[in-house]
Design a protein around this nucleic acid. Structure first.
Length: 431
RNA sequence: GGAUGGGUGGGUGAGUGGCUGAAACCAUCGGUUUGCUAAACCGACGUACGGGUAAACCCUGUACCGCGGGUUCGAAUCCCGCCCCAUCCGCCA
């Protein structure tokens, strides 16, 4: 969430930012409500603290009087404390209700987009940040989409997934399973080489963790829940990995902190099913290698660019046509200040598939989870958090299969050979 | 799942009703000493939210000893509920 202090001191900038998210004048009124509520909270705290201070002093006096055996004087003071306590109760309620109201209001305000984020309503308005200027792969005349290839070469099986779980939970098998594992290994190696520390986090998280990165309350419907144990299946490794540093104060010299993790991701995708959703284009469970950075505010945008470079290099090595989009205000996620999406070209479907989303959250997440750093002067500030997919598997597989299909089989990019152990996917499954 | 014992500051750990935001030790940082290092000695060393102020390396208030509630003039300390952890038993990859 945004800091009240920032809303107060930098209101114009916030208003301009939220306008890029197409906030109406009506919606923007919440900012004034926030400031009003914060004023109330502060006023109540002042009065409350004064009363508590008085109570404390009187209590100390009572203690001393009792020690001296001056019982009647002590009793008189006790009576005074009694009346103060009644006022305290009233103020306490005011204070608490103001505090709760403030939090609730703050939870409704998304992050303020960076000044470089374009205005726009939907994905239609995203800007192509870097286009693919080379030719697309030319496919044989009998080329088919990946879901047909999956059947033909027995790489994954959706019907079997339905039997075991439900729609959108594919079973990978044979060379399909091995390709999946090879990609994970490849992505992890790339991240480790780039200086990220590998972690293997839990796949189930508690409510504090889900709140830390903004899944609660913003995206609760996106997550699978284990209600009995009050746990959530992670929709992305970002959630457990970023929360590793929740409530921590990091020495400035330790920044940036770079972590990577492979995890399966679970997404309910409620209401997201439409015409374009076939095969691996959208599934409830997919594998992903995530990169996370905690960075000094002064450097976070430079770091964001570096993360784009990392993802680009991987896609180059996979020889996949891709483009980078700068998301417009209307399409930028609730918690993000700036987001780039990577899309790869799936040649048989003749469409772009989103395979990575790289974002700078600035202090939005760290404010929620109190993730801070201590600078050289000993001052404590909120750190910036960033993360990106590097990369998300299911759609990468889809593009890889479609683009590399030949009459002899599906060709595996060279960079993966040492991970797959085969150079092509063939009907007999022997490569 | 059953039994027992626990949750105190970065760590170890004292503290069973007021003088405890919390001893002591360790770690860390600054200084003195020193050919260098080490040792020794001295000092500093929580966080949040407020107020003084628009601001401070300044002063000050409140809260926080797992979480929530209760008793009391006063709670780390007593009572109730919850959560978590350790160990043993059971079960099990």
């Amino acid at each position: 969430m945004l800091q009240v202090k920032v809303i107060r001191d930098d209101k114009k900038r916030i208003i301009n930012g939220l306008r890029k998210r197409n906030w109406s004048a009506q919606q923007l009124k919440v900012l004034d409500q926030i400031l009003d509520t914060d004023d109330k909270r502060r006023a109540a705290q002042k009065d409350l603290d004064d009363l508590k201070s008085e109570t404390k002093q009187l209590s100390n006096q009572i203690g001393q009087l009792m020690g001296q055996g001056k019982k009647s004087e002590a009793e008189a003071l006790k009576a005074r404390v009694g009346t103060i306590k009644e006022q305290t109760k009233v103020l306490e309620e005011q204070f608490n209700s103001a505090k709760d109201a403030l939090d609730e209001l703050l939870y409704t305000v998304p992050n303020c987009p960076h000044k470089s984020v374009p205005k726009g309503k939907s994905s239609e308005d995203n800007k192509v940040f870097r286009n693919w200027n080379k030719p697309f792969p030319t496919l044989p005349s009998d080329a088919v989409p990946h879901w047909d290839l999956g059947k033909k070469y027995q790489l994954f099986d959706f019907e079997l997934g339905v039997k075991l779980t439900g729609a959108g939970f594919p079973v990978y098998r044979g060379q399909g399973a091995k390709l999946q594992r090879a990609l994970i290994q490849f992505f992890l190696d790339q991240a480790i080489k780039a200086g990220f520390e590998e972690v293997i986090p839990p796949l189930l998280v508690n409510t504090d963790t889900a709140r830390g990165t903004g899944q609660l309350p913003d995206k609760e419907a996106q997550m699978y829940t284990c209600e009995r144990d009050e746990l959530y299946l992670i929709p992305t490794a970002e959630v457990p990995v970023t929360n590793i540093l929740r409530n921590e104060i990091i020495p400035e010299k330790n920044l940036p902190i770079k972590m990577t993790a492979y995890t399966p991701c679970f997404r309910r995708e409620a209401g997201a099913w439409g015409a374009d959703v076939r095969g691996l284009n959208r599934v409830h469970q997919f594998d992903k290698v995530e990169i996370v950075q905690v960075e000094h505010p002064d450097r976070s945008y430079k770091t964001l660019q570096q993360m784009l470079g990392h993802v680009s290099r991987i896609l180059n090595k996979l020889e996949l046509p891709y483009r980078i989009l700068l998301l417009c205000g209307g399409d930028t996620g609730f918690s993000a200040a700036k987001t780039f999406d990577f899309e790869v070209w799936a040649a048989a479907q003749q469409r772009w598939l989103e395979v990575s989303s790289v974002s700078n959250f600035e202090a939005f997440q760290s404010n929620r989870m109190q993730l801070r750093y201590r600078d050289a002067d000993g001052k404590i500030n909120l750190a910036h958090t960033l993360n990106g997919s590097a990369l998300a598997l299911a759609r990468i597989v889809a593009a890889l299969l479609e683009n590399n299909q030949t009459p002899e089989g599906i060709q595996i990019p060279k960079a993966l050979w040492k991970y797959t152990g085969f150079k092509q996917i063939t009907l007999n499954g022997k490569g």
